[in-house]
Nucleic acid binder design. Structure first.
Length: 426
RNA sequence: GGAGAGUUGGCAGAGUGGCAAUGCAACGGACUCGAAAUCCGUCGAACCGGCUUAUACCGGCGCGCAGGUUCAAAUCCUGUACUCUCCUCCA
């Protein structure tokens, strides 16, 4: 959520910033007009409340002195109702302000390329050259099925499309990959967490998925209480400190967690229908940081590097791009996407997305810290995948495939595979 | 699932309708070479608004949350969340 004061005091700036994210200027005018109404009503009610407080005190004194206060009480009789009327008006206006405010995206950072879609994104760097194959590389779903380690058909029978069974060495590989990632991040100072996989609406609001993106997730009911299957561990990790004031000396705080991520993929029918790329349920190792405002962009660079280190260790070619203003997520001020090379698709595909959400989520979730002077400020929150596990497995299968159909296990994963160096055709 | 108790400041803790006690901690000062102890003083988070160069000043709000009753609610009424104890069940 944006700070209405910032919008109010920098109207044109706010309009320009948000225009690059597809927000109409009229929406800003509207929210400012409503905010003015809101403040005018606050002044009115507060004047009445002050009047009531003064009168109440006089009545209390009169009663204490056993004097008659009937007249004063009668005089105050309708003040209470006036306050109530104004209060309900105020509540309505507040709701209107909020309706717009909670649906406005974060201000993009100046360093993000301006543009409406991914064609405006900027490549920052490339790492490693894609391998030259002396045979036609197979897609990971074909490799997985030939090796008997991925079963999409039975998953479709049991659950539906966009689900998968990992079998045998495949399941072991998935587990090896996320254990390796968690161990790496633990060494980089992230505290490992296991989180709830179902969260309440307040949490979904706190990280910015709700109220705008309800159709992207699976929601169910527990005794009438709506619960959502997490679309990313960012939700439970960031909401960990919701409604809390942290000690500034503890910052920055780093968390990491493996979790399944559940996504309805509404509107993506026909895209990536095969393989592990786009699933309703997939594992992801997530990184989340809470930082002081002045440190968040520096921490974004570090977090992106932490994600890149996994790919470097696994020797998977990738490049890093900065998303264009119109392409970045709702909550993000700046996002780096890391895309891994998939030989069979002959292209880079997203495997991580690292975002600095500045104070946008912190304001929604009310996550603050007390600095050395005792002042309370909003923290900055960051999140990034480190990495999407299923897509990493897909990248390993494709980049490490051999002419005989086998797949070599990347060296750092061998200990996690119980010494296995290769997955052979059975 | 059943029964009971609780939720007030950074912490402890009083308060059954009329300005939210008190203690500890914290902060400022005195004493001291310095510190501790002692003494004096300040301090009710966070939030919102007004006036602002301002973190100054003024006001509102504020006793888990949301409603209600009342001239007036921490206090009375209704609903609700969470925590704890006991019983029951359970991986």
């Amino acid at each position: 959520m944006l700070d209405i004061k910032v919008i109010r005091e920098n109207v044109q700036w706010a309009k320009d910033k948000l225009a690059s994210r597809g927000v109409q200027a009229t929406e800003i005018d509207e929210v400012i007009a409503l905010d003015e109404q809101r403040r005018a009503l606050i002044v009115k009610t507060e004047e009445l409340r002050k009047k009531r407080n003064t009168a109440s005190e006089a009545i209390a004194i009169a009663k204490r002195n056993k004097k008659d206060a009937t007249e004063q009480i009668a005089a105050m009789k309708n003040v209470g109702t006036q306050i109530k009327t104004l209060d309900s008006e105020l509540a309505t206006v507040k709701e209107k302000v909020n309706y717009i405010l909670v649906r406005l995206p974060n201000f993009p950072d100046d360093s993000a390329p301006v543009g409406p879609d991914e064609s405006f994104s900027r490549e920052e760097r490339q790492w490693a050259t894609p391998r030259e194959f002396d045979f036609e590389p197979l897609a990971h779903w074909d490799i997985g099925e030939k090796l008997g380690i991925l079963d999409f058909e039975r998953a479709a029978k049991v659950a539906g499309s966009r689900f998968v069974y990992y079998k045998g060495a495949g399941a072991r590989l998935e587990r090896a990959v996320y254990n390796f990632m968690l161990d790496q991040h633990a060494q980089e100072g992230y505290e490992e967490m296991i989180t709830p996989y179902l969260v309440n609406n307040e949490s979904m609001f706190g990280t910015g998925q709700f109220p705008k993106f309800t159709e992207d997730v699976y929601t169910m009911t527990n005794e009438g209480e709506p619960m959502t299957l997490i679309p990313t561990a960012e939700v439970p990790l960031t909401n960990f400190y919701r409604d809390e004031i942290l000690d500034g000396a503890q910052l920055p705080i780093y968390f990491t967690a493996l979790s399944p991520a559940f996504r309805s993929e509404a509107g993506s029918a026909g895209r990536d229908t095969r393989g592990l790329i786009r699933m309703h349920q997939f594992n992801k190792v997530e990184m989340v940081k809470f930082t002081k405002p002045e440190e968040s962009f520096k921490e974004l660079e570090k977090m992106t590097a932490d994600a890149e280190n996994i790919l470097k260790a696994l020797k998977l070619p990738y490049h890093v791009i900065t998303l264009a203003t119109g392409d970045a997520s709702f909550t993000s001020a700046k996002t780096y996407d890391i895309e891994v090379w998939l030989p069979a698709q002959n292209t880079y595909r997203e495997i991580s997305s690292c975002s600095d959400c500045t104070d946008f989520q912190a304001r929604r979730a009310q996550i603050r810290y007390r600095d050395e002077d005792g002042h309370v400020n909003l923290v900055h929150t960051l999140n990034g995948s480190g990495l999407a596990v299923g897509r990493t497995v897909a990248a390993i299968l494709e980049n490490y495939q051999n002419a005989d159909g086998s797949v070599t296990i990347p060296a750092p994963l061998v200990p996690y595979m119980g010494g296995m160096t290769k997955i052979d055709v059975k």
